[in-house]
Design a protein around this nucleic acid. Structure first.
Lengths: 330, 330
DNA sequence: GCGGCGACCGCAAACATTTGCGGAAATGTT
DNA sequence: AACATTTCCGCAAATGTTTGCGGTCGCCGC
């Protein structure tokens, strides 16, 4: 079955050499317009398209990026992936998407897969306790472009693209001050994550300067823990008049608890989250949030990747500015 | 920079031929244990790993599946992708994920990309107005395994894996009957989609047999339309006592409207949705739903794909059974 | 009529791997 | 000692493409 067209088959049909056909198809000046036309016509007819594996073998260019995320099924990464896929395609690149499941071993596995498929660049949001630094360094030295996004390795010397976490939390703090909240419950995720530390520190830095503000910090591994934390907090004599949620996951737990209560948002208690906006929009009133757009971050990340590959001097760290989206929860 | 290890480099180090090294690494019986050991040791040391492009060129096997979805950022597909990625990896396959954006042209583009990368199989959920059938048929004939999932092309002669839409809707209808609801507002998505038709027809088939049940069907292109539909319906003299939502998107709109109203769920009005469960869990009370698990569907789809490639006789159509998950909205 | 020049095109190597075949040495069989 | 068999390994072709280099024409000018 002579199914797939190759340069060879075309050349045989036309009594030309393989190299002439190859050159004709890419408009090499050495080839006459006449033969070019003939070659192109037949190529079209035979539905020729270059065998990417042969090309890659020859040129060592795969036109593929590796994209490693903790999990695809995550509000934030979905939109990120969506953006990256779109823009990568525009530049003729495809994506190999891999999920680490927050497991460092799996993450390392994924990196090896990227190497195996000779990706030209890797976009990665690291898992907790990642030890991928060394491997990535080696890959970078061997010519693979590396861009960290969202969850980045601290002082790693790689290009990074991430949310302006300090800025977002600072913005949250100022918003809380504006609304004259006095008793704040601040809920965070895994305290070991840099994202948690940054957001917490920035928030506290502002709020702790105020003498008349009481602030209680708590860490919740998941929605349920957040729910429980709130349920307990609102039963105390002096219950919080504001809840700050560092993420969607936390927010979901918080809202579950509040709905079981009789408290009214925002009259009895106000809520502010950091989110990409989908979840906050589900509630009534809609929850006010500081926006962290996965989509925008994706656009930024792929842009940086392409620049990086063109050899621009490393900017090292890019921040995506944040903004407050007012719902009715404040 | 002699960076990447190749068979050639190993063979030169050991004064062996390339073929011997190749065979040694894959435990060919022709090679003595002694040389095998030596080769393997050096390979390990040099961090040799076969150049996938050379292998693919030779064998015409890419170990990659193409996965085409309308959009990655979609509750349902995320979990689907997640499952497929996991199971594909177990069998040594990687994924090339592409999104069509519900655009038939983009979809066709994606298919060509799959061909370009010589994927061994394609998993596809088609866009509306897809004309991919012919192309896919051609690909199938050229040896690419094809599995449709979720949104499938009608009577296409391909393997399909999808939700048991009729069953789910039938289950919903019986549930509604059980709770003795009499005035039902049934909200659906795009009426041209087969998924909409199936669910609608199955639902109506049961409910229309009952004389004392009034049922009003409405199509909503998005959340907002659903919201408006509900807002209008509940202002009528005889307002519905039950709302059926064919999808998460519809449900979100419905809930927005209901929250703005004074109606209490489930006392004043009850709600039932078809969903994968995430969104229904966000509300209070949690919304009862007929489960359509993207994750389970993904597991099924990749299983079918692998079977297909082993040459099992086509089962053609697989249905994922559904089940009722009781929240507090009934 | 010969050197030169430009226009076109082909040869062959290279990329890394797999695999049928054949060959040499070692061992075993009469 | 002659022959057969086994053990172990290398040659070379093949996959499809790219590209440096060289070669063959025809044509022009002197």
């Amino acid at each position: 079955m002579g199914q797939t067209a190759t340069l060879k088959k075309i050349s045989e049909q036309l009594n030309l050499s393989i190299s002439t056909v190859s050159r004709a198809l890419k408009n090499h000046p050495d080839i006459s317009e006449n033969t070019k036309r003939k070659v192109k016509e037949l190529a079209m007819l035979m539905e020729y398209e270059p065998n990417s594996y042969a090309v890659n073998l020859r040129t060592n260019k795969s036109k593929v990026f590796g994209l490693i995320v903790p999990a695809i099924s995550n509000m934030f990464y979905e939109s990120f992936i969506s953006a990256v896929e779109k823009d990568a395609r525009k530049s003729g690149y495809s994506l190999m998407i891999l999920q680490s499941g927050d497991d460092p071993l799996q993450e390392a596995d994924n990196l090896k897969l990227c190497k195996h498929y000779r990706v030209e660049g890797i976009l990665i949001s690291v898992a907790p306790d990642s030890y991928a630094g060394d491997l990535l360094l080696k890959y970078q030295e061997s010519g693979i472009a590396i861009v960290f996004f969202d969850k980045v390795l601290a002082n790693s010397g790689f290009d990074t693209v991430c949310m302006a976490d300090e800025e977002a939390a600072t913005m949250a703090a100022h918003t809380i001050l504006t609304y004259k909240k006095k008793n704040i419950l601040a809920l965070f995720g895994n305290p070991d994550l840099s994202i948690t530390k940054k957001r917490r520190d920035a928030l506290l830095k502002i709020l702790e300067k105020e003498n008349d503000i009481k602030i209680q910090v708590q860490y919740c591994a998941n929605s349920d823990e957040a729910k429980n934390a709130v349920s307990q907090a609102i039963q105390k004599k002096i219950r919080p008049d504001h809840i700050f949620c560092m993420s969607d996951e936390i927010l979901i737990g918080v809202m579950k608890s509040l709905k079981h209560s009789t408290l009214v948002i925002p009259d009895d208690i106000s809520v502010l989250a950091i989110s990409n906006g989908f979840i906050p929009g589900l509630y009534n009133p809609e929850i006010s949030y500081i926006e962290t757009s996965g989509y925008e971050l994706g656009k930024l990340a792929i842009k940086r990747m392409l620049e990086n590959m063109e050899g621009k001097t490393p900017v090292k760290a890019i921040m995506l500015p944040s903004r407050l989206v007012a719902g009715g929860s404040l």
